[in-house]
Nucleic acid binder design. Structure first.
Lengths: 220, 220
DNA sequence: GCAAATTAATGATTTATTCAAG
DNA sequence: CTTGAATAAATCATTAATTTGC
């Protein structure tokens, strides 16, 4: 009866809220140290491990992209099909839409990032590109600062080599010591996010296909 | 051929983005004049009518509620479930998983609303209330993803090199335990980690012995 | 109302791609 | 051209939510 101790991580509402807030703030692919930090914070609200955070961002990002793709195609589809019926000149959109910039859009205002962790997107996909094209943008602005703080001020080209060093250290540490202090005490800090919710929406997902291809996963 | 001639409003990605951002900012049931303003703004991006805006908020609000309900119950269920039967050895699951009694949760901060639309009700919806269980507040976040960009200039593109680090493989290895850095320490009130890396040079990667290739990792 | 059966979400893994050093 | 490193895409698998027949 031991209940199946649930095999997988089940985020608490608080954890989810925080993760979503970070995502909205631009966090997409947190670095190892960010993951550590996030995990440490979230562990206050319930069990959580670094990999959970990692996967969460991976999945969320992927599904977000998927969603966008869908939206876009839907929209294009629609446009293609319904072009004839526009009474006005509104769709200037089609032309400008894809890759880049939109016309000078109406002013919008912004939202501040959570203090904690400013990592900006580092967008990497064409989608992002596209998406931000409109006017949203994602900029990397506080990066420098953060960077400096973290690296002690040095700022050189982060070639792989450089990273290596860090990575190595990191790994060594992590590796050997897996200590997961279940929530380190109080943790009162964290000033992140306001309350709100959702950034998610629906999406149709699903892909199913059964294929047992080659590999054998024999998972446990 | 047949096409769906424009039977119904098909929001452009930009419109959607803006609407979502407003929603996140606290807008729930815009007044007639707000709807007009919103509509005017959004019409810049494509065809749209007041009713579309109205319906959008209605639907979004309803779906959001549904989603929240889901989350909460899910969580509660989970809790009840796992709490009651846990006499087991090491599944730290139970221990740490005490959840949401949200003790002294981190402070939230407020954010501003979009400029255009000031009179927003910002009703703190009951949902928000509910959701944040402990200390809720509604914060209105402003919209805008825009403005952030200008700021900096940056030097180089954060290519993968900058940002990498946790690869899943890697992670998988470090697996569960990892996280939580070295210091669990202070956690003081202000910066626990507000400073941290970002996608730039921070730690690196590296994996030294990465394993690789291989697929067979079986069995976790 | 309840619980098996079905469907939708989403956490976790695996496989493909991409980029840039050798 | 080959290879290592990292990410994105696809897929697998489990859990929550719905639906459905009693």
């Amino acid at each position: 009866m031991p209940q199946a101790p649930s095999t997988r991580w089940c985020p608490t509402p608080e954890q989810l809220m925080i993760l979503e807030e970070m995502y909205r703030s631009g966090v997409r692919t947190p670095t190892a140290s960010q993951i550590q930090q996030i995990t440490a914070h979230l562990s206050y609200y319930g069990r959580i491990e670094g990999k959970n955070v990692f996967y969460w961002f991976q999945n969320h990002k992927a599904r977000d992209r998927q969603k966008l793709r869908r939206r876009l195609s839907r929209h294009h589809h629609h446009l293609l099909f319904s072009c004839s019926s526009h009474p006005h000149s509104f769709h200037r959109f089609e032309e400008t839409f894809h890759p880049s910039p939109l016309p000078p859009p109406p002013p919008f205002h912004h939202q501040t990032l959570p203090h904690f962790l400013h990592q900006l997107p580092v967008n990497s996909s064409p989608l992002c590109h596209c998406f931000s094209g409109g006017g949203s943008q994602v900029a990397n602005q506080g990066l420098d600062l953060l960077c400096k703080l973290e690296t002690g001020g040095r700022e050189e080209t982060p070639t792989r080599a450089n990273n290596m060093e860090y990575g190595y250290e990191w790994m060594v540490k992590m590796d050997g010591s897996s200590v997961v202090p279940l929530r380190c005490q109080p943790l009162k800090t964290l000033d992140l996010f306001p309350t709100k919710s959702t950034g998610l929406k629906d999406e149709g997902s699903t892909s199913k296909s059964s294929s047992c291809s080659t590999s054998t996963n024999l998972s446990p």
